Every structure is written in structure tokens, then in C-alpha cells.
Amino acid sequence: MNQASNPFLAFIQGNREELIEKWELKMKKEDDQKLSSVISDHTYTNICNEYINILIHSFMNPDDEPSSKIGDFSQKIVQLGWSLRFLTTSLSDMNKILFEMMTLNSTEEEKMSLVWAFDHWIAPVNSEVLHQYASSWERTVSLQKIALQELSAPLIPVFDNITVMPLVGTIDTERAKRIMENLLQGVVKHRAEVVLIDITGVPVVDTMVAHHIIQASEAVRLVGAKCLLVGIRPEIAQTIVNLGIDLSQVITKNSLQKGIESALEMTNRQIVSLGE
């Protein structure tokens, strides 16, 4: 099928402004996340124009592979925070607006013919947009997961030879592995003599969590440093006792402040008040 048999190309080019205006108003009305409060009208207009450009390019080059423009367009949609539901609704609205404009004075037979043309010319473009959106979303989530993993067990130097690892949230096997890796790498990198693991932000310390902490403490000892467990709240202490967890081989303190004071003593330093 050649360009001349495409019923949409000339119509979209000739009615572009009206089509975009109607679609933009519909998008704002259907905005399920109220993004219009933080997204300018210019952004909506740009998105509409980019999609129209994709359609025109596809109509004029029907034998080409899906263009990189679709990938860029879909990635921009993800970056704007538009949900899959909002995207599919918006594309459907655009199709309805285009169909209504093109069939204003058409017969039923002409309308049915145009429905077939929609399936042939526009549906594949929409399908590729959704496919690229899903791929871009998966990449974004993957990158976010990696970033969160990097931040989930940071090792922070607070004094010479003293580092702190603040832990927040639940600790599963995958995160425990990350903690162990960061601890060992950090001890060597910062030449730490004492490492404080702060569990103030860990909601539950069960047998598995305690096992991972003991393993981490032993691993730190094997590379020549000492490990302190700090931030043990009363309810956590009670849970540890009730479960019969043995932390006798780990030095424990109830707060980070007490832990730092002990760490300074272990490295032959102390906090001295200068007075007035």
C-alpha cells in the first residue's frame, strides 16, 4: 500500500492545529494524576506534536522499522510520570477525535472502511509506543533499584578509622549480602579500625537478621577491625532475649552516641569538654 492510499496523512497535515487543540483539552480533562498542575500547557502541546510527527513519519515511510522517535517519545512519557492507564486512554482519545473529525458527514460504509484503515495504519504505531513505554519503564525501575541498593547500606566515615553503617527498613537475604560487601570494602577503603552498625531504623530484628549481623561482625573481625552494634531499642532488646538470640560475641550499645564514645576509646581517643 502506497502513501496515496493512506486516508490519514493529508487530513492530519491539513487539520493539525485543531486536532492537537482538541486532544490537548481531552488529555487535561482525563489527567488521572492531576499532572496538569505541575506540567505546563507547552509540555502537553509538545507531546501532542511529537506524536503527530511520529504518525506522519510512519505514514510516509510505511516500510521502515519503528523509528527511534518512538523510543524517545515513550521515554519522555515515562519521565513525565504518566501512567500506562493515562497513556492508553490518551491514545484512545486521540483516535476517537481523529475518527469523529474525519467521519463528520460520512456514511456507515465509509465509517467501517475507516475503521479498517485505523487498524492498518495507526494501531501498529500505538502498539509500538506502548511497547517502548513498557521497555523504558522497566529500564527506569531497574536503574532505580540499583540506586536504592547502593544507598541501602552506606558506610560513612565519621572519624579517622571509625565508620558508621546506618540501616533503615527491613533486612532480607539480598540486602544482607549488600551489607556484607559494603562493610568489607569500606573497612579496607577507609582503613577502619571500628565499624558501627546502627539498627535504629530497623523495625524488626528476628533470628535471620541477627544471624546476618553476627556474620557481618565476624567478617569485619577477620579483616582486622572491630564491630559495634548500636541503636538497640528496648523492644528490640526484649525480642532478642525472647528469641534466645546470642549476641554475646558482638559489642552492643543502645545509641549511636554511646557507640561513637566506645569507638573513640578503642582507638585511644576520647571526647574532652573544653569548658568555658
Rank of each mutant, 00 (worst) to 15 (best):
E276A: 13
I39S: 12
S74C: 07
S106Q: 03
N46K: 14
Q79G: 10
K29F: 11
Q257A: 11
M102K: 05
E138C: 09
L98E: 01
M112L: 14
D119H: 07
S37Y: 15
L87M: 13
L148Y: 09
T170N: 13
K29I: 04
I214A: 08
T103F: 03
E109L: 10
V168I: 15
N53M: 04
Y51M: 08
A237Q: 05
V223Y: 07
S255E: 05
F59C: 03
L143K: 15
S92I: 06
D206F: 06
H120G: 00
H57I: 00
G224R: 01
S68L: 14
S67P: 05
T170V: 12
I122M: 05
T45E: 06
H211V: 06
W116Q: 09
E50M: 13
T163K: 01
L35K: 12
E138G: 02
L55T: 00
G186L: 06
E276G: 07
I240C: 00
P157Q: 02
A134M: 14
S37T: 15
P154C: 08
V241H: 01
L55V: 06
L55C: 11
I54P: 03
L222Y: 09
M266V: 10
T200C: 07
V195R: 02
H131T: 08
L229I: 07
E235Y: 13
S90D: 07
W23H: 09
I122Y: 04
Q270Y: 06
E181K: 05
R221W: 10
D206W: 09
D206Q: 08
F59Q: 00
